[in-house]
Nucleic acid binder design. Structure first.
Lengths: 402, 402
DNA sequence: TCATTTAATTTAACCCTTAAAAAATTACAT
DNA sequence: ATGTAATTTTTTAAGGGTTAAATTAAATGA
């Protein structure tokens, strides 16, 4: 993190080992010192020393020793189970969409304690207003705690350091700068991250996607892609997310995109694009009202009834997505894809078009057979992924901080 | 590297500090213990201890103390300058192209000692033949030494671990597997790397590109891209290089690419593509003889004379490159570009088309003003970059190895 | 020749880890 | 009851690495 010396001092060795031990608790939950010693590959003595410190500092606690103490072989001194102290520190993980803010409070164990959600048009607010609005929302939680870190998923380009939004379709120029203000008035760390990247992070903890290489395509207000490669989140030059939505799908006079250019994948596959096409509206203009999740559900419903403009709109979305994936696969090698968000509910209707378009534009292989799956709720995954980022930050602070 | 523990032992601290100190010598050349102490931010005592070990092990040596000892303030005990021992170990850095192998011998100081080059059609050889051919070429060096590592730049996709060529247009299926054999018969480490990635690595040491974010576009037999982001080489999922050449430039029935698909950027911007177009040959077939660097020089010469098929071929190459860059910039954010290789000599003739095409297809900005530069010799940079990779490997071995 | 100055080495203290010994805590057999 | 075996946790002693401070080395100049 900081531009300080790398490990070369015994002091740093201790910090490294603190982190090792904390990570084992994070990964495995309740464990005894002996188990941690084996898991972390550290001597029993070290584990005793470090856990004594961690106990004193409140990072971990002794569990209630119920009769049901697994793995403890009946003979001998029983193991004392330890675990992360849920009350050590708190994370607020949230999701900002064009018309709502959702915040959830997570304890240090990673359990969700409380959730609040507010409808609000973010584009109309400046940075200070957004920051103050978010702070006020905390009052809505069941419990009153001062979170140590906010991690907020936002649509758009965010800087890799999590400190800056470079571009977002749902925020005004000034609105993009809410993070610094929020940090000041809340006296907490604030991290902003791309929503699709957070979804991918959440899914990466999922057994189904835990093998490590996959992409999460978020189909809602815009089209996002969060990428995991060999178990590591992929980060671009500056921006956290690879902008699948703004690959040029159609040459020349294509449909109008929210980014003001023509022909982007998003201009064919996002909520507003699908709605525009299904309703026979002018592809060179943006819809004059926000497209809601009910609108999209209705179109998907219509499309399931049979041929018609709704069905065709979804087909076209599939073609755009397939094209974008082909470009991505050319640059990153092919990876399985999880579709998330409202549009993803029509995956079965798009599947064929996506594959056709993908195979048409992808090089190197004659026939690709990519595994497509879908996840229903985007919001949950954005918050989940954000909470993971927050907890990781807390763990690092606990080990290396100050 | 190995799946062993991370740093948590005093032993590892020593290794870290060894590496720190070696790196300072690598970076700054001749330095006294006192200077290294400041540069590496380690105590004088540690530097004394470590450098005593390094001297014994032959990694560094005492310099001839010429009168001209800079920085030594005239009073007091004079500083003893130390430096990396050029004879400690040796790197063979090389470049494999479709019709030649070039190898250069570098000493541990990074100085090039000797070079050999042979014309040979690599596609006709199997892995064992290539490995044995390379080993035989070492006899051609002015001096006889056993290199510790070979680093070979190759066109195509290489695995990030440097141990495998996944796909290469210049090698047969079996030919791609020469690395393992070469390692056996030479008893040395062998690393294969993408040629464009090596060029980028070489340029990254160049003051002009040292700010850290840039792309190196290699225009020759194929089209390659080596990317540096914030001073770090960018690596994709498996492959080292982001395959700019095989982005789909033209839909449907585009020109035939060597990868057997149609419409790739390479099918419009590579040597053979430019030649094919300039000579009015069938765009749906590959030329029936290898296109030489003289052929390309001639076309560029013709194009400079004025309008005609040569000029138009180069324009088309520019459009393809511009399109490819637009896609790249969309995914990675825009970066300055260095053009390298035979085709790059026509940069001035292509500049306008590249920019036009780029701006037409790039999103987010109304007008991009990217810095384009060109470097003349690709081969030198491939070898240079490869030698850097080799030296870094040696440094790590010296610090952490065994 | 000697004081002054700067570089390099040595010394002593400190921190962290580990292996081994010791202590703690429980089950079980007699 | 009580002793023994089993198992976990803590304590201890040794070993290795670092640093600040003291010491030694090597050169200049009066």
């Amino acid at each position: 993190m900081s531009k300080t010396k790398e490990v070369y001092l015994s002091d740093d060795v201790r910090k490294q080992n603190r982190f090792r031990i904390i990570s084992q608790f994070r990964l495995h939950g309740k464990k005894s010192r002996t188990e941690i010693s084996k898991l972390a590959d550290l001597s029993a003595g070290t584990v005793t020393n470090v856990s004594t410190m961690l106990l004193e500092e409140g990072m971990i606690r002794v569990c209630d020793q119920d009769a049901s103490n697994p793995s403890s072989s009946s003979h001998g001194r029983p193991r004392v189970q330890l675990e992360l102290n849920p009350n050590y520190k708190f994370v607020v993980a949230g999701s900002l969409t064009f018309n709502s803010i959702s915040l959830s409070l997570f304890d240090y164990l990673g359990d969700k304690i409380s959730t609040v959600q507010e409808k609000v048009m973010l584009e109309t607010m400046d940075g200070d207003e957004i920051a103050e609005f978010i702070l006020l929302m905390l009052k809505g939680f069941d419990v009153e705690v001062a979170p140590s870190i906010f991690v907020l998923g936002v649509q758009g380009l965010t800087k890799n350091n999590g400190k800056e939004i470079l571009w977002s379709p749902i925020l005004s120029e000034s609105g993009m700068k809410f993070a610094e203000r929020l940090s000041q008035i809340s006296n907490a760390e604030v991290t902003v991250a791309n929503d699709s990247a957070m979804i991918a992070r959440s899914l990466s903890k999922d057994k189904a996607y835990a093998d490590g290489t996959f992409g999460a395509v978020l189909m809602s207000y815009g089209i996002g892609l969060g990428l995991y490669i060999d178990g590591q989140p992929f980060q671009g030059a500056k921006s956290s997310a690879s902008e699948l939505g703004h690959i040029s799908f159609k040459d020349g006079d294509g449909a109008l995109c929210r980014c003001k250019k023509h022909g982007c994948v998003e201009a064919y596959a996002s909520d507003y694009a699908i709605w525009r096409r299904a309703k026979g509206l002018d592809p060179h203009a943006l819809p004059d009202r926000p497209v809601t999740s009910e609108d999209i559900a209705q179109i998907i419903e219509d499309a399931r009834q049979g041929e018609g403009p709704a069905r065709e709109a979804i087909r076209e979305a599939g073609r755009a997505i397939g094209f974008g994936l082909a470009i991505m696969f050319g640059l990153f090698d092919a990876f399985p894809v999880v579709f998330v968000g409202r549009g993803a509910q029509a995956l079965d209707l798009m599947d064929e078009e996506i594959r056709k378009s993908l195979n048409e534009h992808f090089r190197f292989h004659d026939q690709l057979d990519i595994n497509f799956t879908k996840e229903s709720d985007a919001l949950i995954h954005v918050e989940n992924g954000s909470s993971i980022v927050g907890l990781e930050w807390l763990d690092q602070q606990a080990a290396f901080g100050a």
